[in-house]
Amino acid sequence: MQTKPENDTDLRTKVNRETARLPWSELEKHFAAGNVVYVANDLDLVDVAVRISHDDKATIVQWMADGKVMKVSDQQALRWQEAEASLWAVVVSPFILVQEEKPRAQ
């Protein structure tokens, strides 16, 4: 089924509104269930969420092969826990996509 561009815009707006910064401590139970997915900083979190919503397998598989989208590792989880990190997060059921805050330009 082809998605109309205006629907894609509506979805992007919805996803953007649902994106929030959350402390890692609130995400740990979801991590334990295997539902937290890391998104690399060079990708747009909202774009990744929209593509997953549209089941864009080719793009998602490429991102996974490039290590840009992957399940959060135990090492990442431990680092975020120790740092009491806050992450950008958005739900694309059953997953929660997370991304570290992007460094600000100097």
Score class of each variant (00 low, 15 high):
residue 66 D to R: 15
residue 64 M to P: 06
residue 66 D to Q: 15
residue 31 F to E: 01
residue 88 W to R: 09
residue 64 M to W: 13
residue 104 R to E: 11
residue 39 V to W: 06
residue 105 A to G: 04
residue 39 V to H: 12
residue 9 T to I: 09
residue 23 P to I: 09
residue 49 A to M: 11
residue 91 V to D: 14
residue 10 D to P: 04
residue 28 E to I: 02
residue 57 K to C: 04
residue 90 V to N: 13
residue 94 P to D: 10
residue 46 V to E: 06
residue 97 L to F: 05
residue 22 L to N: 03
residue 32 A to S: 02
residue 101 E to H: 13
residue 7 N to S: 06
residue 53 S to H: 10
residue 40 A to I: 10
residue 79 R to A: 07
residue 15 V to R: 03
residue 87 L to Y: 07
residue 88 W to S: 04
residue 61 V to F: 15
residue 45 L to I: 04
residue 37 V to P: 09
residue 91 V to T: 09
residue 45 L to G: 06
residue 46 V to A: 10
residue 68 K to S: 15
residue 97 L to Y: 06
residue 78 L to D: 05
residue 70 M to T: 10
residue 44 D to E: 11
residue 83 A to W: 10
residue 48 V to N: 12
residue 102 K to F: 15
residue 60 I to Y: 09
residue 69 V to M: 14
residue 54 H to A: 06
residue 67 G to P: 13
residue 49 A to L: 14
residue 24 W to T: 03
residue 43 L to F: 11
residue 41 N to C: 11
residue 76 Q to G: 05
residue 31 F to G: 00
residue 75 Q to G: 00
residue 88 W to G: 04
residue 83 A to H: 11
residue 40 A to L: 00
residue 53 S to E: 06
residue 71 K to D: 11
residue 80 W to N: 00
residue 49 A to G: 03
residue 16 N to M: 13
residue 55 D to M: 13
residue 5 P to E: 08
residue 26 E to L: 07
residue 44 D to P: 04
residue 44 D to M: 06
residue 66 D to T: 08
residue 39 V to T: 08
residue 41 N to L: 13
residue 80 W to G: 04
residue 14 K to F: 03
residue 14 K to V: 02
residue 4 K to L: 09
residue 94 P to W: 08
residue 29 K to E: 04
residue 66 D to H: 12
residue 27 L to Y: 00
residue 85 A to T: 10
residue 13 T to A: 09
residue 50 V to P: 12
residue 45 L to M: 03
residue 97 L to V: 10
residue 89 A to W: 05
residue 68 K to A: 14
residue 52 I to L: 15
residue 25 S to G: 13
residue 74 D to E: 01
residue 63 W to K: 08
residue 54 H to G: 00
residue 79 R to Q: 06
residue 77 A to W: 01
residue 52 I to F: 14
residue 7 N to E: 07
residue 100 E to S: 11
residue 8 D to Y: 11
residue 64 M to A: 14
residue 55 D to I: 05
residue 40 A to F: 10
residue 72 V to E: 03
residue 35 N to F: 01
residue 92 V to M: 02
residue 9 T to H: 07
residue 95 F to Y: 15
residue 10 D to V: 03
residue 3 T to N: 01
residue 27 L to V: 04
residue 93 S to G: 06
residue 69 V to R: 13
residue 42 D to R: 14
residue 49 A to H: 14
residue 59 T to C: 11
residue 50 V to R: 15
residue 13 T to L: 00
residue 68 K to V: 13
residue 91 V to K: 12
residue 9 T to N: 00
residue 10 D to F: 14
residue 94 P to C: 05
residue 41 N to F: 13
residue 92 V to E: 03
residue 50 V to Q: 15
residue 80 W to L: 01
residue 19 T to G: 03
residue 87 L to W: 08
residue 68 K to C: 11
residue 25 S to V: 09
residue 83 A to L: 13
residue 27 L to W: 02
residue 87 L to V: 04
residue 40 A to Y: 11
residue 17 R to M: 08
residue 61 V to G: 09
residue 47 D to S: 14
residue 73 S to E: 05
residue 72 V to G: 01
residue 96 I to H: 07
residue 33 A to Y: 08
